[in-house]
Nucleic acid binder design. Structure first.
Length: 522
RNA sequence: GCCAGUGUAGCUCAGGGGUAGAGCAGGGGACUCAUAAGCCCUUGGUCGCAGGUUCAACUCCUGCCACUGGCACCA
């Protein structure tokens, strides 16, 4: 079996409910994953939950639950998100799963054996109340610490460290020689600046179990647990390992190396979709970890921006939030998917406004796409009883341009630009209706043949649009196919070539795709 | 403090040494297939400020201002 196109999101810290930022990241990844399905590739889309750590442990304690029970409860809501957003995911990982913990431990054993770790003592200011070390940043102007931290003591603690210094030079040259490795470009420059301007400090990879018990035990030092890096990031390879990926299994001496039946070839990842806040972890620490393990690096780290609401930071305490579930319930999942992808170039920060959402919904989805499909197919029903008599090539060239641009933009990870290309075809088709005026042709029996051609061009354009739209608006694309009377799914890009509808084809029933919401029915 | 970046029409942004562009919003018109949608036409800008280079600067250079991001640090 050939290697699949492997795309991941960050796994979310299971310490709250999904919000707009989480939903956005997953939708971007889903659009890119679905586009690969369209291109005829095997795609594998992974997302999941990061469940260990201090905050989870404390939150569980506060609720009188075990950390595992706390995570199990929260996971229910998170696992429903893919369904809410119509994500075509292939796996959902939780870091408390055995398959993940086993791989984490195998990695730790291997890297310890090969001398990548050392043990050292660190002393610093420790807040017993907050159970955390404080840094100079936490100091107040008078040199003390906020009473919030309670008693602060100078504490010495031994931990394991991962050596980073030997990796700095090759990482810089790898990023320089692979322009797509960190994208967009401004983020790449940021990482290069970070790497070139300072010596990397070694990474502390453990916590004493006495202080933080909710983590994966270090196999060779059970009085410690792993700290984030060698836990959360590892999901990107622990899941491939659990599917028998030969590259990961061989590098880590895991069972499955011999290539079992049903094994998936996943690693290296093609795209890690992440938020800009965790760029350093993915562009600096993660590549170094992989190199130390003897694994190839992912092809691309795609860092997206943050959303605001009405120009303000979203915050639960002020209620200034966007609830993805509520928007989907009110407007439909495809409207939500459309808005977040269309509004932002990947990497830019966005600003959600209800007026902006409603504006795009009405002008682009309802009046643009929805009305085009509705007017086109309605005329076929009205004038030809829903049967397309003759083929024509009007609009073929415009459809081909839209297809070509859509594909190249999707391959370049620019779904926003792809939507703009698709909407250029929608605008052209709406213009074509006015220029050819099929409703006038219908009144003149001598121009019946011309009417056939126009109706065909419009129906065929809506069919091409369904194919182009499938990665973005899968439900809508399938509705268009159903209205066209086509039984299959518009999920093959090769079907975007002109002439897919045969003369004599009978359309299905027509219904508006995106009903307007600003004019209540009279 | 250091390093980037941004500042263009009411809004979101594109552009790039030689009559300022798009989408949305606003205004007008002709049509009627359609979700009163669509189509055509159109009003908006001394392109952050001040200098400089040039025959010519919104575009290049310098300084300043504002905002954003990253890094570092201090009380």
């Amino acid at each position: 079996m050939a290697k699949s196109f492997f795309i991941t999101t960050a796994i979310d810290y299971s310490n709250g409910q999904p919000h707009l930022g989480h939903a956005y990241e997953k939708i971007i990844a889903d659009v890119l994953a679905r586009s690969r399905v369209c291109f005829g590739e095997q795609a594998f889309f992974l997302t999941g939950l990061d469940e260990h750590g201090q905050k989870v442990q404390q939150a569980a304690l506060a609720e009188g639950k075990t950390p595992q029970a706390f995570c199990d409860h929260l996971a229910i809501g998170w696992r429903s998100l893919p369904k809410t957003l119509n994500l075509r995911i292939d796996d959902f990982v939780r870091t408390t799963e055995l398959r993940h913990k086993q791989v984490v431990q195998a990695i730790l054993v291997k890297l310890e054996r090969e001398g990548h770790f050392y043990k050292a003592e660190h002393s610093g200011f420790y807040s017993t109340r907050q159970e955390t070390f404080l840094t100079e940043k936490d100091r107040l102007p008078n040199g003390g610490f906020d009473p919030f931290y309670g008693e602060v003591v100078e504490l010495k603690e031994e931990n394991y460290y991962f050596k980073l210094a030997p990796h700095q030079d090759w990482l810089i040259s790898h990023i320089e020689q692979n322009p797509e490795f960190v994208s967009p470009e401004n983020r790449r420059n940021e990482v290069l600046g970070f790497l070139k301007n300072q010596k990397l400090e070694d990474l502390c990879i453990t916590r004493p179990a006495s202080r933080l018990s909710w983590g994966i035990p270090i196999p060779f030092a059970p009085e410690y647990v792993t700290y984030v890096w060698f836990d959360a990031l590892v999901n990107y390879i622990s899941v491939p390992a659990s599917h028998g990926d030969p590259i990961v299994c061989q590098a880590l001496d895991l069972p499955g190396s011999s290539g079992e039946a049903g094994a998936r070839e996943l690693w290296p990842a093609d795209i890690h979709v992440i938020g800009k806040d965790i760029l350093q972890f993915h562009a600096v620490y993660w590549p170094i970890m992989l190199r130390a393990m003897g694994l190839p690096l992912p092809s691309r780290i795609l860092a997206h921006g943050w959303w605001q609401k009405d120009g303000q930071r979203m915050s639960k305490s002020t209620g200034n939030t966007v609830d993805p579930q509520a928007v989907v319930t009110e407007w439909g999942v495809d409207a939500f998917r459309y808005y977040v992808v269309r509004e932002l170039a990947i990497g830019a920060d966005g600003n959600w406004t209800d007026a902006g959402f409603s504006g795009r919904y009405h002008s682009e989805l309802a009046n643009g796409l929805g009305n085009l499909v509705n007017r086109s197919l309605s005329m076929v029903h009205r004038y030809r009883g829903g049967v397309l008599p003759a083929r024509s090539n009007d609009l073929e060239a415009e459809a081909a341009i839209a297809s070509g641009e859509t594909e190249s933009h999707l391959r370049a990870c620019n779904p926003q630009a792809a939507l703009q290309s698709i909407w250029a075809l929608i605008a052209r088709a709406n213009q074509y209706v006015d220029q050819t005026a099929p409703f006038k042709l219908a009144k003149d029996p001598h121009r019946s043949a011309r009417l056939d051609e126009v109706l065909y061009a419009l129906a065929e354009t809506t069919r091409v649009l369904a194919v182009l739209l499938w990665p973005f608006l899968p439900g809508t694309a399938e509705k268009i196919y159903a209205q066209l009377g086509l039984g299959n799914s518009p999920n093959r890009f090769t079907d975007s070539s002109w002439g897919g509808i045969r003369p004599g084809h009978q359309l299905g029933p027509v219904a508006p795709l995106f009903p307007r919401k600003d004019h209540p029915k009279a």
